[in-house]
């Protein structure tokens, strides 16, 4: 759990991510992320929850500059990532890694698991001597709960949960301090999800990683996050300690979201609002 005293490791201030949208002949600007601010400390998990089109995945990408934010700042240990040039940013990515939703798209099918995990050392030469790669690959496999025999395998026969653990091992290869996880288990069956979640949370305890955890799964978020930010239409509408937000949600959107979660509902009594309830509907993503 997070220690409250520690200084934030990552501070995001007034981050904005606009896209140009063409509707017919008109070009307009659309802010997928519309002024988001938060900070996170080592060992802490901040969950960002929201529905599709809320901007949560764009926010994840903007933090790591996988898209170029329009304005605002992302400060990691006091350095503004948005001010870095390409080479400096590449170096900074050692400390901030991302895990994506689809473990089938994120692993190269013709590389062995060992090659996949050691790829970051190829990209960042000088971090780990070549002679130590094999031993470190095995160590990383062990950390994510995979047997050493997987090192020589191709990802093809691996299950979704195993692939996601390989992706986590690759992210850990550079000993990052922050992981941005974009729906890391939502493509997996629930019985397998639990494997990956346990690996992630044990790693956090062991290594003191900070997690920015993007999710739409409210029951899962309750178990893993210290704080939760509820995102709607590009903005955080509510941020707070996870128990506070779940037991006493303040914003009407948070209330609607929690009220519609099947895990938290008692019955389907009550009215189906039909296609009215526009205040709850998201704008479509561009």
């Amino acid at each position: 759990m997070a220690s409250v005293e520690s200084d934030p490791i990552l501070v995001v201030s007034d981050l904005r991510q606009e896209f140009v949208v063409t509707r017919g002949l008109r070009r307009t600007r659309f802010a997928a992320v519309d002024g988001v601010s938060f900070s996170i400390s080592s060992g802490e998990s901040l969950a960002i929850v929201g529905e599709s089109g809320s901007g949560k995945s764009t926010l994840a990408r903007a933090i790591l500059r996988l898209v170029e934010p329009t304005s605002g700042s992302v400060s990691y240990r006091g350095r503004d990532l948005l001010a870095l040039n390409a080479a400096q940013m590449r170096a900074a990515r050692r400390d901030l890694q991302m895990i994506f939703q689809d473990p089938y798209a994120s692993l190269h099918p013709r590389r062995t698991v060992a090659d996949i995990i050691s790829e970051p050392w190829r990209v960042h030469p000088g971090i780990l001597p070549r002679t130590e790669w094999d031993a470190r690959v095995l160590e990383l496999l062990h950390q994510v709960g995979l047997p050493p025999s997987y090192a020589a395998q191709f990802p093809g026969p691996l299950s979704g949960g195993e692939r996601q653990r390989v992706a986590i091992a690759r992210a850990l290869a550079l000993s990052p301090e922050v992981l941005v996880l974009d729906e890391p288990v939502s493509a997996l069956d629930v019985s397998i999800q639990a494997q990956v979640i346990r690996v992630l949370m044990s790693l956090q305890q062991e290594l003191g990683l900070a997690y920015v955890f993007i999710s739409h799964d409210l029951s899962l978020v309750r178990l893993i996050a210290d704080r939760v930010a509820v995102m709607s239409k590009g903005r955080f509408v509510e941020v707070g300690d996870v128990e506070d937000v779940y037991t006493a949600p303040q914003h009407p959107y948070t209330q609607a979201l929690l009220g519609a979660d099947p895990a938290l509902m008692d019955s389907l009594d009550g009215d189906d609002p039909g296609d009215i309830a526009p205040e709850l509907r998201e704008r479509g993503t561009p």
């Binding site: 529905e51 739409h216 099947p262 389907l268």
Partner: peptide, 13 residues
Amino acid sequence: DVTVQAGILRLLK
């Protein structure tokens, strides 16, 4: 999304 899902489930019932 969950808020949409809840409506559809209620509709089916």
